[in-house]
């Protein structure tokens, strides 16, 4: 009995001290390590995937690199930790990564129950349906009894159940692990419908031999604000990373690009908002544990939000996504970053 007690006590101590270590300064840990551990997907087209040479590329990947550039001064000092939909939060909470950029929908339960701190939205998405044209379906309301390919461990799974229940319809789930698997199953006819975020549907459809044989139904059945997250309980690190995201979005609004950011940084201009980001006015970097040039490094490494978007998922890429909701608020979108001041 005594042995068990001793064991239990030492386990409790170990646990307590582990969580203690996790709360003590991720920023310092990252700086000391000289490398940012960024949790990404095992591969989602346009968002994160290794290229032919094995270098990670994509929308989420660029935000990781921007964070590394701001914190460590080098956009290449990132270790990418690939995770599946099911393992991502465990990996973050277990300390395998410092930050999670993995097209993750912000939800109340993830925020509160899974003990995450979300930093903001980097992509506004929504769940849609794709069906073969031959099926003759024109609305999601006609999908009663359909078999649906659905990724496990995602919010899309829950949205699907909600939507069908609310409309008194039934469906037969065909569960899959990755987007790529869904594509194969859908093309092989093992499910009538493929559902995932609209951005994913567009890219999947774009890769088909005959994209015109498939249609994306007009209904968008959910809000999917995708955003980065860090572990709960380290507010300083959350601040640092949140403002990297905000400043990339604001940079686009202010017209700061990877091309002209150095110029802005070399001499203070007339626009105080630009000066604050370029580090020529105030000491905003110090507030988040970094130096004056933090935003300049981030922007010159990967560009502003618009540049990141166009390079990875924009209309000129195979994904061909329009800005839509993800345009700046000044351009009719809902991208509205808090000002760096």
């Amino acid at each position: 009995m005594k042995l068990f007690k001793t064991l239990a006590v030492s386990a409790a101590v170990a646990l307590a001290s582990t969580s203690g270590a996790a709360t003590a300064g991720t920023l310092e840990d990252v700086k000391a390590r000289g490398e940012l551990n960024c949790i990404v997907t095992t591969g989602v087209a346009g968002f994160a995937a290794p290229n032919d040479a094995g270098r990670w590329e994509g929308f989420d990947v660029d935000f990781c690199r921007a964070t590394a550039a701001a914190v460590l001064g080098d956009a290449n000092k990132v270790k990418f930790v690939p995770t599946t939909g099911k393992t991502r939060f465990t990996a973050l909470n277990a300390g395998e990564g410092d930050i999670l950029y993995r097209n993750t929908t912000i939800t109340m339960s993830r925020d509160a129950d899974l003990k995450l701190t979300f930093l903001g939205v980097n992509y506004y998405d929504g769940q849609g349906f794709m069906v073969p044209k031959a099926l003759g379906v024109t609305s999601a309301k006609q999908l009663d009894g359909a078999s649906v390919c659905i990724q496990t461990g995602t919010t899309t799974e829950l949205n699907l159940a909600d939507y069908f229940r609310a409309n008194n319809m039934s469906y037969e789930p065909v569960t899959i692990e990755t987007n790529e698997e869904g594509q194969v199953n859908y093309l092989a006819g093992r499910c009538d419908v493929y559902t995932t975020d609209a951005s994913g549907l567009a890219s999947t459809r774009g890769s088909f031999d005959n994209p015109n044989a498939h249609i994306i139904l007009p209904e968008i059945i959910s809000k999917e604000p995708l955003g980065p997250a860090v572990r709960q309980g380290d507010d300083a690190w959350a601040d640092t990373t949140r403002w990297v995201l905000n400043v990339l979005i604001e940079a686009e609004e202010l017209g700061i690009t990877s091309g002209n950011v150095k110029q802005h940084a070399s001499k203070a201009g007339n626009n105080p908002s630009i000066n604050r980001i370029a580090g020529t006015e105030g000491s905003y970097g110090e507030m988040i544990g970094l130096d004056k040039q933090w935003a300049v490094r981030a922007i010159s490494a990967v560009g502003n939000y618009g540049e990141i978007f166009e390079r990875n998922i924009g209309v000129n890429t195979p994904l061909g996504l329009a800005r839509g909701l993800n345009a700046q608020w000044t351009d009719g979108g809902i991208l509205y970053a808090a000002p760096a001041r």
């Binding site: 997907t41 095992t42 591969g43 989602v44 087209a45 346009g46 994160a48 995937a49 290794p50 290229n51 032919d52 690939p82 990755t178 987007n179 790529e180 594509q183 194969v184 890219s203 999947t204 774009g206 890769s207 088909f208 031999d209 890429t317 195979p318 994904l319």
Partner: peptide, 17 residues
């Protein structure tokens, strides 16, 4: 297999599973 799956997420090569 992991490399293969990740490669399939490259927009250049999507769908060649």
């Amino acid at each position: 297999i992991g490399v293969g799956r990740a490669s399939l997420a490259d927009t250049k090569w999507q769908g060649l599973s």
